[in-house]
Amino acid sequence: MFMLSLPSDLTQGATTGLLDQLQLFKDKRILLGILLPVLNLGGVYVVYTYLRPIVTGGLHFPNAFVTPFLFIFGLASLFSNQFSGRLANGNGLKSMERVFIIQAITLIALSFVFAMPWLGLVCLFCLGMTMYLLNSPMQMFYLAVAEQDYPQSMVLASSLISIFNNVGIAVGSAAGGGIVTHFGLNWLGLGGGIFTVVALMTLLLLNRVRRQMETE
């Protein structure tokens, strides 16, 4: 069933070896593009890694509340995955500019609402609804660049989102650990927000580069 949902017209071009495929990384659009999943999930996982301590120790909800909270948060992230495809069908990377603004505001606000538990939950649910929106637009972007200019790298391009999402998860989790150790739980949102602001700046630069290359 999964195979039936994949595009049928994407094929790997002829290649002479690994170095030929790595030509993809000479493209500045790709170099900027691989930063986005790192920064996006880096910012999210600064907070996501510590969801339970935030809910119980920061927002002071009882331990019994954690399970229903995680269930609802999971539904929010499922929505994020599903809606990501709709963004990709439109002007995905342009739309992500607004998403990153919302996500940055949500993360930064989280650091200032620990005294308002229910508002803190709203911030967390908003985070869940935005965390995976980048996936499909980014995947389509990688494939479009490869198909047009680096057909020998189609397989490599299709794996970039998975690779750099995992890098982002590792970076965000490590950053979150450092923030909690040195500053405390209430600084996590601000730390994650910095990642997202940098992601927004990177996206704006990428979209400008794309426009320039399209007019050349």
Rank of each mutant, 00 (worst) to 15 (best):
G13I: 05
G58C: 14
M138R: 01
L188G: 03
D20F: 13
L32Q: 09
S158H: 02
G33H: 03
V197H: 08
Y50I: 06
G13D: 00
R211G: 07
C123D: 02
A146R: 02
D27N: 08
G192E: 00
G192I: 00
S111G: 07
A174N: 01
L22I: 08
G85I: 05
L188H: 03
L134N: 10
F73Y: 15
T202A: 14
D9N: 15
R29M: 02
S173F: 09
P68C: 07
L75C: 08
R208A: 14
L10T: 00
N40R: 07
P137S: 06
M131A: 07
E214D: 07
T67F: 07
S84R: 04
S173N: 06
G128W: 00
L156V: 11
Y150P: 02
M96K: 09
S95C: 05
A146D: 10
V122N: 03
G43L: 01
L24R: 03
L160P: 10
Y50E: 02
F195V: 04
A144F: 06
P117Q: 08
A174S: 14
V113N: 10
D27V: 11
L206W: 05
T16C: 08
R211H: 05
S80R: 05
G178M: 11
L205K: 15
L110T: 00
T202S: 15
G85V: 11
N135F: 02
N63S: 15
E216M: 11
A88M: 14
L127K: 01
D9S: 13
P68K: 09
A170S: 10
G92H: 04
A88V: 13
F25C: 06
M116I: 15
S159N: 14
R210Y: 10
L6S: 10
L185Q: 12
V180M: 10
M96W: 09
I169W: 03
M3Y: 06
D149E: 12
L119E: 00
D27M: 04
P117L: 05
M3H: 11
N166W: 02
M1C: 00
T16N: 08
P68A: 05
F183L: 07
S95K: 15
G168V: 01
Q139E: 04
Q23T: 06
A64K: 11
V55N: 12
I101C: 07
P62Q: 10
T202R: 10
Y142T: 11
D9F: 07
T215K: 14
L160D: 01
S5C: 00
Y150C: 00
P37G: 05
V197E: 06
S84D: 08
S80E: 04
F61T: 13
Q23D: 11
S153G: 11
P62I: 07
V99I: 15
N81I: 10
L107M: 05
M96N: 08
L18H: 07
V167I: 14
E147A: 14
I179S: 01
W118P: 00
F73W: 02
S162N: 13
G74W: 13
I34H: 12
G177P: 08
L127D: 01
R52L: 12
N91G: 08
L4R: 09
L36G: 08
S5P: 02
G90L: 15
L10H: 04
L185T: 07
N135G: 03
L156G: 01
F25K: 06
S153R: 07
F61W: 09
R29G: 04
M138Q: 15
F71H: 03
V198C: 11
M3G: 02
G192D: 00
V55H: 12
K28M: 11
